[in-house]
Nucleic acid binder design. Structure first.
Lengths: 224, 224
DNA sequence: ACAGGAAAAAGTGTATACAAAATACAGGAG
DNA sequence: CTCCTGTATTTTGTATACACTTTTTCCTGT
């Protein structure tokens, strides 16, 4: 584990939340690796807080699926097998289809405009070649759709699912040859939503996620 | 709140888990009502433990959506508006369809037998008229399907969603006139899975959940 | 009587202390 | 040398103590 975990003390939030976000970031960025133990005292001294907020943060990571704990042994960062990834992607596909379908029914001018901006941003970011930035732009594009779906719980679940595959997603986005297809798919989703053609957008999103699924699974197989 | 919360000390589990299950039960059974505050000291003395496990249990309830906390004010049992319920049921429908579709692809003799037993149990339980028992039999029937879907994360999410509507589901099951339809639907799901007719089972489950949706929403409207 | 505000009470946030379990390790028997 | 065992150490589990915030209460002045 890197030894430069640092708290964002900027917010006036309970420490448990700060710790939670800090650890989550560290896990998603790969600074703490799957299988690595999350030891309370160690983390506490590293972050300069007591064990109490650490423990509560771990409980939260646990429920988010980013950590697994065994009683009296402690917590470790969740490992992801190919099967786990398949499972997550199956769920994500179903929920993404739901979300875009709902968005299609509810979407208004406001969100369409935001979506257009996000679309252009994404296109722009692919030219920069900065993977982090591309990932961010992609997240923003899909976030607009989730917001338009007007179902906070669904948005929550999708964000959580996205987290769980984030590490592999970044790898996936390193492959530049897929950028044109991604842009095209985003464009089609936007067009479909604008037309209010529910069947079409669900179809496209379905393929969109399937494509991801194939690539991400390849990446995992290589890693194993 | 009832003052007879009691810990199941039988298990050799961390107290946080025992407290978590105890509070969850109490919330689902309506012993602690939506909007009611979850005060740490009060709960701690009532359950005979310290605040520490209570706090960790609350963090878990929070992530499960059964409690909401505002910093420095504490936690309370989550209220459910009609919109919340709609949102949950939308998600549940999508995931239930996914689950039964997957089950249809994977199901073997073993699970089909268990499903048949569960089907008969459900039919039997409706004759008893005991709502708790019927709910239990219904849960077991669907659990077999979830297991056959062979996606633990999905099962987890569905169990969680089920929890969130449990309170209202019980009301729904008090209406005896719906029993024949429920039995019929279960039977059709079983038959469909046996035939491996994915399209059919997804269709039936879709209706099955939609029917629930209508009734549950009526119940909420009455309550408001 | 009523509004304002200080003091008290209640409650959460965090740190620390102590207990119990798991793990690591060293020494001895075979 | 290997395996067992008992002890030391580490780590988690739980309780408690203290700090700080929010809420309530009640007194005071108008």
């Amino acid at each position: 584990m890197t030894d430069k975990l640092e708290l964002n003390t900027n917010a006036y939030l309970p420490l448990r939340d700060v710790v939670f976000h800090t650890l989550r970031e560290a896990i998603l960025k790969g600074e703490i690796k799957p299988g690595e133990r999350l030891m309370e005292l160690q983390l506490a001294s590293k972050l300069g807080v007591s064990r109490t907020p650490i423990r509560e943060a771990i409980r939260m990571l646990e429920l988010e699926g980013l950590a697994v704990t065994t009683p009296r042994k402690g917590a470790e960062v969740a490992k992801m097998t190919e099967k786990d990834m398949e499972d997550v992607l199956q769920i994500r596909k179903a929920l993404d289809e739901l979300a875009v379908g709902l968005a299609c029914e509810n979407i208004g001018e406001h969100h369409l405009e935001k979506l257009f901006v996000a679309l252009k941003n994404f296109e722009e970011s692919t030219r920069s070649g900065d993977v982090k930035q591309i990932a961010q732009a992609d997240v923003e594009f899909h976030d607009v759709i989730y917001q338009a779906a007007d179902n906070p719980k669904l948005m929550n679940m999708l964000n959580n699912l996205r987290e769980q595959i984030y590490r592999y997603r970044v790898e996936y986005l390193k492959n530049k040859s897929s950028y044109p297809r991604l842009i095209e798919e985003h464009k089609e989703i936007y067009e479909g939503l604008k037309r209010g053609d529910k069947q079409a957008v669900v179809e496209i999103v379905s393929h969109h996620v399937e494509n991801q699924e194939i690539v991400v699974k390849n990446i995992i197989q290589e890693q194993e």
